[in-house]
Amino acid sequence: MSDSYDFGQQWAEMAEQMNEAMEQSMESQSAFMQSWAEAMESSMPAEDELAEGMEGYSRAYEVWMDAAEQLLERTEDAAAGEDVSFTELRDIWLQSANEAFKEVMDTSAFAAANGQLVQSMMEMQEEMNEMSEETLEGMGFPTGSHIDEVGERLVELERRQHAVEQKLDRVLEHLEDGGE
């Protein structure tokens, strides 16, 4: 009885861990696909890019379904008494996640959506910089623009100082040569 209880307990723990891993994987997949869909909506790719993106998503879905089948088979093997490690089950999900993401990420639609996302982020960063400058200026603090201007003026002053020093050196040489 103890052996069957141990097996039952191990099976329950394995099933619980597998369920948690599948939930996390599905949540990750869902979050990824949601962000991808939002990026796709905002960039409105060309029709051929959209078709290619849907094909990539379809291939990714097939990868996930193959992984689910593999997990079901290995779970059945474990229920039949075969030694199935949690690492093996985890590796099935990790490998299929990598393959599924690759199927989607290799499409031109994904590249276009990422390009749009990067452009939007750069525009947002520029707006944030402008707001920071305005806020600092309104509070009487020096801004990055002010510091850049001071730096440019210092460089110009150093250039002029160097030119004056060269002229002074020539005048002193002339005086020394003329005085002999």
Results as ranks from 00 to 15, higher is better:
residue 2 S to P: 03
residue 21 A to Y: 02
residue 113 A to W: 01
residue 65 M to T: 12
residue 20 E to K: 05
residue 132 S to C: 12
residue 23 E to Q: 13
residue 32 F to M: 04
residue 132 S to T: 15
residue 121 M to L: 09
residue 126 E to N: 08
residue 57 Y to P: 00
residue 59 R to H: 06
residue 147 I to D: 13
residue 64 W to M: 14
residue 59 R to K: 10
residue 135 T to N: 11
residue 151 G to T: 09
residue 52 E to A: 08
residue 5 Y to A: 10
residue 162 H to V: 10
residue 134 E to R: 09
residue 118 V to Q: 14
residue 37 A to K: 04
residue 167 K to D: 04
residue 33 M to Q: 08
residue 180 E to T: 15
residue 34 Q to Y: 10
residue 61 Y to R: 14
residue 11 W to D: 01
residue 139 M to I: 09
residue 148 D to A: 15
residue 63 V to Q: 13
residue 42 S to A: 02
residue 157 L to F: 05
residue 81 G to Y: 02
residue 154 L to V: 06
residue 25 S to F: 02
residue 93 W to I: 09
residue 20 E to M: 03
residue 42 S to T: 04
residue 175 L to V: 13
residue 51 A to N: 12
residue 175 L to E: 13
residue 157 L to I: 13
residue 5 Y to C: 03
residue 158 E to N: 15
residue 165 E to P: 00
residue 65 M to E: 14
residue 94 L to K: 06
residue 22 M to D: 05
residue 16 E to P: 04
residue 81 G to M: 03
residue 140 G to L: 02
residue 160 R to G: 00
residue 157 L to H: 11
residue 99 E to K: 10
residue 179 G to I: 13
residue 70 Q to G: 00
residue 39 A to L: 05
residue 130 E to W: 12
residue 111 A to W: 03
residue 145 S to E: 15
residue 24 Q to C: 01
residue 76 E to L: 07
residue 73 E to P: 04
residue 10 Q to C: 00
residue 123 E to Y: 02
residue 58 S to K: 14
residue 14 M to F: 06
residue 103 E to I: 06
residue 167 K to H: 05
residue 31 A to D: 11
residue 119 Q to R: 11
residue 10 Q to T: 09
residue 119 Q to K: 14
residue 3 D to T: 07
residue 154 L to D: 05
residue 72 L to E: 12
residue 130 E to H: 13
residue 28 S to T: 06
residue 9 Q to N: 07
residue 128 M to T: 11
residue 114 N to Y: 09
residue 7 F to C: 00
residue 76 E to M: 12
residue 88 E to M: 08
residue 177 D to W: 14
residue 70 Q to P: 03
residue 132 S to N: 15
residue 53 G to R: 01
residue 131 M to K: 10
residue 119 Q to D: 14
residue 151 G to S: 11
residue 20 E to R: 06
residue 82 E to C: 02
residue 167 K to L: 02
residue 26 M to Y: 04
residue 146 H to E: 07
residue 66 D to I: 02
residue 101 F to K: 12
